[in-house]
């Protein structure tokens, strides 16, 4: 085997030289890198600000609401999501290759990454803790219906489940079903109904009470 030394399985990895407490560990590494000019703390602030305040599920919700409102847009989105999302200026790290999958009365889609926690950042932001948990990663592929029950979701009998395990650099967005009673809502009102979890496939979109 070539390059056998490229992955030393040393139980005493370098990281064990840092303090064990995670907050102190991160602080120590930031100090070390900053002192050598390798990291600019202001750049870290900027990264955090972008993912905390600018990129999040509101992006995906805008896409879903538009797809519900505009059949031609929806057809184009399902056919070639990359082109359509770029036209909406939705693109970037962990969303370079996008596929949108549509929930129907026959098929419910849900997304997981069993090997790590791949997630479509430009449309949904940073994944929630549950998406990164061992329980979700381990169970979503084998018992998706029991996992859905953990979220309080029960599918209509006869619905088939398709679980997408994100094993490559392709990222998946679920297009949830549009709830009944929303015919009069505009795109902004529709977008407000669309939850993050519904775009991962672990929630359904409920009808607004006032519209029913």
């Amino acid at each position: 085997m070539a390059h056998d030394d490229a992955h030393p399985d040393d139980p005493h990895h370098a990281h064990s030289h840092l303090p064990p407490d995670p907050a102190l560990r991160v602080k120590a590494l930031e100090t070390i890198l900053t002192r050598r000019g390798l990291v600019d703390p202001a750049a870290l602030d900027e990264i955090i600000d972008i993912y905390q305040n600018k990129i999040g599920p509101q992006n995906g919700a805008r896409v879903v609401a538009k797809a519900w409102s505009d059949p031609a847009f929806k057809a184009a989105l399902l056919e070639d999501a990359d082109t359509v999302l770029r036209e909406m200026d939705i693109y970037g790290r962990q969303g370079e290759h996008m596929v949108v999958v549509e929930n129907t009365p026959e098929t419910h889609n849900m997304v997981v990454c069993t090997l790590c926690s791949c997630y479509p950042w430009p449309v949904l932001g940073i994944p929630p803790a549950w998406y990164k948990s061992d329980a979700y990663r381990a169970r979503a592929v084998r018992e998706p219906r029991k996992v859905l029950a953990d979220f309080g979701v029960t599918l209509v009998e006869g619905t088939k489940v398709r679980v997408w395990d994100s094993t490559a650099e392709v990222r998946y967005l679920v297009l949830p079903m549009r709830p009944a009673g929303t015919e009069d809502l505009d795109e902004d009102a529709l977008a407000a109904l669309v939850s993050r979890d519904s775009m991962v496939g672990t929630a359904l979109v409920a009808a607004p009470e006032a519209a029913t």
């Binding site: 995670p22 907050a23 991160v26 602080k27 590494l29 930031e30 890198l33 390798l38 990291v39 600019d40 750049a43 870290l44 602030d45 990264i47 955090i48 993912y51 905390q52 940073i126």
Partner: peptide
Amino acid sequence: WHGRALALTLAS
């Protein structure tokens, strides 16, 4: 520190 860890990883 979660955000800091993510940002440090990307910056590294």
